[in-house]
Design a protein around this nucleic acid. Sequence first.
RNA 1: GGCCGAGUACCCAAGUGGCCUAAGGGAACGGAUUGCAAAUCCGUGAUUCGUGGGUUCAAAUCCCACCUCGGCCUCCA
Length: 560
Amino acid sequence: MPAVHIHNTLTGELAEINPIAGAAGPVTFYTCGPTVYDDAHIGNFRSFLNADILRRTIELTGTPVRHVMNITDVGHMTDDTNADGAGEDKMAVAGRRLLEAKKSGKIHADVAIDANDPMAIADFYANRFLEDARLLGLKVAIEAQSDPSLMPRPTQWISQMLDMIKQLIERGHAYVASDGAVYFNVKSFADYGKLSGNTLENLREGEGGRISAQHQAAKKNPGDFMLWKPDPHHVLKWDSPYGAGYPGWHLECSAMAAGLLGAEIDIHSGGEDNIFPHHECEIAQSRCAHNKPSFARLWFHTRHLIVEGEKMSKSKGNFFTARDLFAKGVTPAALRLEITRTHYRTNANFTMQGLADCQRMIDRWSRAAEALQAKVAAGTPRLVGGDAHNSASAKNANVNANANANANANANTSANVNANANINTNACANINHNAPAGPFETALPRFTQALCEDLNMARAIAALNEAVAVEDNSACAHRELAALHKMDSVLGVLERNTQVATSGDSDFEAKVNALIEVRASARRNKDFAASDRARDELVSLGVQIKDGATGTTWTRAVRA
RNA sequence: GGCCGAGUACCCAAGUGGCCUAAGGGAACGGAUUGCAAAUCCGUGAUUCGUGGGUUCAAAUCCCACCUCGGCCUCCA
């Protein structure tokens, strides 16, 4: 198995992933998740899904991963000029927006939520986020259903944050300033700036226009950042030795990563905008509080997504949320592929055309999977040795394929296949070990290699596409299907290539099915004028029909 | 102003010194199929890599300048 190599923001070089826990893993991986004061947009999801692709790639090479992603339910400050201190909590702003959304009908008025309760707002959006994330195949969100600790929320970690502050003060890295707030002293940490390439000199005071003079005056150095803000009137506050208030937002990830993964971790990921200040500050806090030579060994940052060639930002309002797109009829699979297929360190250009391109690719892969499935079910593979072929094995084809996909890391040599056969004695009963490797088995090592080289998705996808274009009946369908599933274990699209149901679908479905029946009977009677009328009507309803060997199927056409 | 990325066909996008007269996908066009379509299948497609110089036997790839776009410089994935 090739080792995974990833560009490390901290060193600027390609680094091999060598788990702290040893070669057998697990790799400890922390991802900065969303702040749930609004629905996550596709740019957010690009960062989360790239982390998911990395995690699945590591798993593809046989190393388990312990992946943690926070859901931030503490409001970060919204007032730009007071980013280091006061300002309105985002949850309070979200509450107002919720009320407006209800008024305008964007959110059903009967959604029971108290817009004045920040925790209720956070819960509301966290649940919507988790729905979207699971639809998109974000593995950590799926795992969190059985182990919620994998997606921690900072409001549950306040005491650990206070412990860290205490440590930092005791070790001389933090101080209580004249304004009552606790700050981290950046001059006490020599490596401050190493991640972002910023030197304290280059961080010219106030250049971003977001530091208030009032707070600057209280700090020892202009670059010092807040660890605790006493504010007895804030919407969210906790007791502390420094007065009732709330923690500095960089602290939450440090505390949760340490608590759930360890004081030193293998990988930490986020969007490129997290590099500075968020991750720079995390490194400073974590290393100083825990007295360790490193925090995360490897920093993985995804560049931003642009939309139809233009910059996307919340303030401009030209962004899509995942659910916007699902409502238009975009499949989760197509969205997942569209926002992960471009290399994570380049700005990806999201387009509706690109979404359609991805859909066509996925549809073709799905057909290939179905064709292989059918061959497996039909017992097509030439059998070697004994009574392997029976109906039970055909019935289990699906299960078998998945079992193989998981166990069969490198199906290139017969030795490997035999090893797997021993593991899955029954499951592999009708595998033909003597058949030559088919196109998918041949593509798998190329696919894996491409991903191991800094997640080269384009090359991995090309390897798969080239395999799909080749028909090879001499290969064992079982093994071919396993190889295809193995590739999809990273891409994660085959399982979610269906449109998300919207409310009111059942009436619509009945109407569509009726029209399809009208058209079918008109065609049987060779009344083509009538059948074309029915077809036109279906098109105007936004329905796309496909005439297949077994009848007519339909999907909602994707609206622009 | 400082630091950091990127510009490859109509679109998305690999390739970072010779296997490049540039991968893969989509669009378009031609063919097969279809009552006609859609879907599907097959085929065609950049002598050229933002612009101008330079280095080299050899450049999309290295160097210099310029243009354009994006990110960070204490809200942001």
